[in-house]
Computed example of a mutant assay.
Amino acid sequence: MTSTAVPMALVVDGGYELAEGGRWVEGRYVYVDILSGRLFELRDDTGPAAPRQLARLDVPSGAVAPVDDRPDTWIAAAGTGIALLTADGTLEWLDRPEDRTPLPSRMNDGVADPAGRFWAGSMAYDGTHGAGSLYRTDPDGTVVRVLDGLTIANGPAFTADGTTMYLADSAAGTILRCRVDPVSGGLSGPETFAQLRGDEGSPDGMTVDDEGCLWVAIWGAGTVRRYHPDSRLLHTLTVPAPHPTSVCLDPSDNRLFVTTARHGVKNPTANSGAVLSVAVPVRGTPVCSWRGRRRTHP
């Protein structure tokens, strides 16, 4: 295992409380500020430090993925459920399953898989152990709870063929790995892929590179880790902020983007609550879209 303290470039000094969910979507970097419910994009042709706000919701926004064949429409893990977010900022709810849980909870990170399904986790606001779940949104718009007993569900991330899913339970310091049936979306497992000690920080947002290795933002440790598919820790990058939250690899360039948080930082700098980038020797895989139909709940 190697460790590197390569300087990271400050791309956006946004002062975000909890920037998360970075994705590279059709030539633009898209990310959220969870607690303020804001969605941003950053285009290569706009130069540094020029994000554009795409939407501001009245509920927390955990992550989005593009909707296939519907330009400027997103599927969002937001508030207590899953919704379609249209270009004018309207939310069309597919379901709000966390309304039916006993504790005040919200949705957290999420991503679409290569088969066109959308997966997103949840957590209780007070971090109650075991109160979080993982949900799968199928192409017909049905939202299904597929795992429970989690605490802070983060990730998930998929291999390019869609048959393996990585999922972090941040509070437990655990990265899980599941096999995914590409037809039904059914899971087998999960098994423990990696276990972090308490002094090593907590696994947060994740992505898989074009060599099949897993990159993980480590909250509380100011690092990003890269793991081999056999779970060997290959490399650790130092991040100039204590709480990196998500990682995104540009599929057309050798750049890693990292979002960070000001939340919980006593003496934040410009790098806390920011978007950072650094050159890396690998690239990402193309973003996946939710390939679903329009079936919404009031």
Rank of each mutant, 00 (worst) to 15 (best):
Gln195Val: 06
Leu147Asn: 08
Pro203Met: 07
Ile75Lys: 12
Ala124Gly: 13
Thr90Cys: 06
Pro48Cys: 07
Gly22Asp: 10
Leu39Pro: 06
Gly162Cys: 09
Gly37Asp: 02
Leu187Gln: 04
Ala19Tyr: 01
Gly185Val: 00
Thr101Cys: 12
Gly173Met: 01
Glu92His: 12
Trp24Glu: 03
Thr269Pro: 04
Gly62Cys: 08
Ala77Asn: 00
Gly201Asn: 11
Ala5Val: 00
Ala124Trp: 11
Tyr16Pro: 04
Lys266Trp: 09
Leu94Val: 05
Ala217His: 00
Leu237Ala: 10
Ala124Leu: 01
Pro7Cys: 09
Glu98Tyr: 10
Gly149Ile: 08
Gly127Ser: 11
Gly130Lys: 07
Glu98Ser: 00
Pro203Thr: 01
Arg145His: 06
Pro51Val: 09
Asn108Asp: 11
Leu84Ile: 06
Ala5Trp: 00
Tyr29Asp: 09
Pro190Ala: 15
Thr151Gly: 06
Asp113Thr: 09
Val144Gln: 12
Gly273Phe: 00
Tyr29Ala: 07
Tyr125Val: 08
Ala120Phe: 09
His129Gln: 14
Ala171Cys: 10
Pro114Gly: 03
His243Gln: 14
Cys288Gly: 06
Pro51Ile: 07
Pro244Thr: 10
Pro139Lys: 02
Cys248Thr: 14
Phe193Ala: 03
Pro242Gln: 04
Val287Met: 13
Pro190Cys: 12
Ala241Val: 02
Asp199Ile: 06
Ser170Val: 02
Thr90Asn: 10
Ser246Tyr: 00
Gly264Val: 05
Arg28Lys: 13
Trp215Lys: 02
Leu91Ile: 01
Ser36Cys: 11
Val258Leu: 03
Pro156Phe: 00
Ser133Gln: 13
Arg117Ala: 10
Arg145Asp: 08
Tyr166Lys: 04
Gly186His: 14
Thr164Ile: 13
Arg295Ser: 13
His263Phe: 15
Thr296Glu: 14
Leu176Tyr: 15
